[in-house]
Amino acid sequence: MTILETGGERLLAAVRALLEQKGIVSTNEIMERMAITDSASPGQGARMVAKAWVDPAYRARMLEDGTKAAEELGIPMRGMPPLGVLENTAEVHHLVVCTLCSCYPRAVLGYPPLWYKSAGYRARAVRDPRELLASEWKTFIPDSVKVRVVDSTADYRWMVLPERPSGTDGWDEARLAGIVRVGDMIGVTVPGV
């Protein structure tokens, strides 16, 4: 029997046992990492965005070092690639893509949406991002705003800090976090109320 014909569960148990025996990684560490992966969701990134909207000092720290800013809010970042944060302004709109594979800031956004990994999204994002956003998401970037496509090709993971929409004056962090969607932090949509 070859490795390809072995039952997946048996193979996993064998590999886990070997990892433990060789002192590479313990079952507890695997369980801990599974729990962290499963608990990561766009809600984590939304909390960071909302805090950045109400706290200028936090916003500055987040743009300087996304990993530290995530940890500040209790988001587990140990063993994760460094997190970079891209700030949308009246002058520039960021769109994140990984043309080579599917690099994604899972620690703060959870599992990527299926379309994020599609060949169509990856190709169109770098070739004609304005057309992609307009036709697939009805997101229209004004001509006065520069589109900066961020191709996540190596060791960083990138999330977008969108602009705070008008009509949210006086809102607290929890209410603001409630309007931030995953697409807003990838750059395919912009938050609105």
Binding site: V126, P129, R130, D143, K146, V147, R148, V149, V150, D151, S152, T153, A154, D155, Y156
Partner: peptide, 11 residues
């Protein structure tokens, strides 16, 4: 849109 940009990590 000649001002649009790509930002890429390169070794």
């Amino acid at each position: 849109k000649p001002d649009d940009e790509l930002l890429i990590e390169i070794f």
